[in-house]
């Protein structure tokens, strides 16, 4: 079977998982439904010939689920049966459906599936292994051609995690006294 049919199947699965994650009342079930979306994304990456991304997405999804479950599922006093504002939901549905219809016209202008405009990629694919000596071309891009990007990226990671430490630590010290 061609790749497109499998991708339609996986994407339908992911959409069902996303809607379930937003509508389920139980916190643990909602987090696991988001896990469905992330693991479906990992399988979709495998079908789209990106094994690097499939591995990274799989591993990060597992860690993300562990973090969310440990953070949120132990609060027994928390009730999740919050009703959304009906007027707000109606307005959001109308606006988002208009955006979706406009999106149909916008996506027609893109190159169709399977025929990308890979102008820069040609140089990476033909000269990359000789210039960097790395058999994995994705690694040669993130750590040689665009290593400055990766430096900015680990700075963002460092900053966000430093923010998490700061937020969590202040409370811990206050209550220790």
């Amino acid at each position: 079977m061609p790749v497109e049919i499998w991708l339609h199947f996986i994407l339908g699965f992911m959409i069902i998982g996303a809607i379930a994650a937003l509508e389920i009342k139980d916190v643990l079930s909602a987090i696991i439904a988001v896990g469905i979306v992330g693991l479906g994304l990992s399988v979709a990456f495998l079908f789209l010939q990106a094994p690097d991304l499939a591995l990274v997405q799989f591993v990060f999804e597992i860690l993300c689920m562990i973090i969310l479950i440990r953070a949120f599922t132990h609060r027994k006093e928390h009730k999740i049966d919050l009703k959304s504002n009906v007027v707000l939901v109606a307005i959001a549905v109308v606006i988002l459906s208009v955006v979706f219809v406009l999106g149909i016209f916008a996506f027609k202008e893109l190159p169709s599936f399977g025929k990308p405009i890979a102008r820069i990629a040609e140089r990476y694919l033909t000269k990359g292994p000789q210039e960097t000596g790395s058999a994995n071309i994705v690694t040669s891009i993130i750590l040689d051609y665009r290593a400055y990007d990766t430096l900015g990226e680990i700075t963002v990671l460092f900053t966000s995690i430093l923010g998490a430490f700061t937020i969590l630590r202040v409370i811990g010290r206050k209550q220790r006294r």
Binding site: F113, P116, A118
Partner: peptide
């Protein structure tokens, strides 16, 4: 990633 895919 969908944009980057080249068929075959």
């Amino acid at each position: 990633i969908l944009i980057a895919y080249r068929s075959g």
